[in-house]
Write a protein that binds this DNA or RNA. Structure first.
Lengths: 201, 201
DNA sequence: GCGCTTTACAAACAAACGTTTGGTTGATAG
DNA sequence: CTATCAACCAAACGTTTGTTTGTAAAGCGC
């Protein structure tokens, strides 16, 4: 009979703090540019102490990236699910865009590493991240195909190029977004607007 | 009186080869993920030998990045200069896009590091790269402003978001482009087409 | 062939790296 | 009070890192 842990669990709190700091440093300095000693120092800890919570640096970064991507998937699905039924493809894409940017820009530390530097990570980490990322891209493939099938997107548009362009724009937002200038909703509206209706007069 | 060097200069050849290999490895594994010994080994040389051609790893990566960005600037300017006079803004932007992709996708090793991992580089390198990059972005600022001023782009379009979105799409192309599937001209046409005229039916 | 420069190597250096080990602390349960 | 256990530290480990040093070929003008 497994006992229920009643008191607040300090292990989990420390783990979360380690993940937060690691995500921040990984996203800023990259995997190889971030050293265990820096992560520890930011937490007023010593390098060796982290090995009580994580087996290795590799496992640490994998956990950070997994949290990041799954957070995007969850946020996007929530935004799309909140739409009324029988809404247009444009509305779905717009909601997905908003969700993507919400997760990306507010939990950016967790996601930017996998977006910018997947190739620099240890190969086992790359493989696991790619599995989740593929699952996410499938969602976009479906929405865009639906849009073209029901006539909302011109028949001659290359959906692969379009999908990669949209995700490229969204992910690149991480490089220039500053809080307080434009809201995430405004950016999402502009970016999809440019793609959907074009910018020409 | 400086003598003219007539014979082919083996120094320059080796230097160029070092730069090529470095660009490739830096773009693949990042600055901190690339070790001097790997660069040397790819050239059948020993680590210490590189220091005859370059003072430090930092100077080496700086030279790689400078070549990359200036190659983009040169290619873009050449494409735009080749246009007939009094052509439309869309044609200018399209030519610039083609030039950007040409340089990016065919000399991608030299550019991708500065695009993806600027923040992971030593600070002095970051500063110098940013100066050149700003000079390049100014060119786009001007073209897009002209397009809006002469009425080709809707007045309510946010030019900053548009510029960053376009460059985001172009730079992201590096992550998925495969030779032989689509030509660079086709990709450039699609990407600017989506922005200019939109994808909606 | 001789001197000079160019180019590369072998070997070593100190520093930094991820990780391991054994021990110390402080809270909690019986 | 005592035993236990989670949480951390101090110190060291073997490697790997960027870089330096002294030296040896190889090419070229004379």
């Amino acid at each position: 009979m497994t006992e229920i842990i009643k008191k607040n669990n300090p292990v989990k709190q420390t783990r979360t703090m380690i993940l937060d700091v690691s995500a921040k440093l990984f996203s800023q300095y990259g995997y190889n540019g971030t050293v265990i000693r820096d992560i520890a120092q930011a937490l007023n800890m010593k390098a060796g102490s982290l090995y009580y919570h994580f087996d290795s640096k590799e496992q640490l970064v994998l956990e950070v990236l997994t949290i990041g991507i799954e957070n995007i998937i969850d946020t996007v699905q929530r935004e799309v699910a909140a739409l009324p039924k029988n809404c247009s493809s444009k509305e779905i894409v717009q909601a997905a865009t908003k969700g993507h940017l919400l997760a990306l820009l507010e939990k950016g530390d967790y996601t930017s590493t996998s977006i910018r530097n997947l190739g620099q990570l240890p190969e086992p980490v790359q493989a696991e991240v790619l599995v989740i990322r593929d699952r996410y891209e499938d969602m976009w493939r479906k929405w865009l195909l639906d849009a073209q099938t029901n006539g909302e997107i011109k028949a001659n548009v290359n959906l692969k190029v379009l999908r990669l362009s949209i995700l490229g724009v969204l992910n690149r937002t991480l490089a220039w977004y500053k809080k307080g200038e434009l809201t995430i909703e405004e950016i999402a509206g502009m970016q999809i607007g440019y793609f959907w209706d074009g910018v020409s007069a």
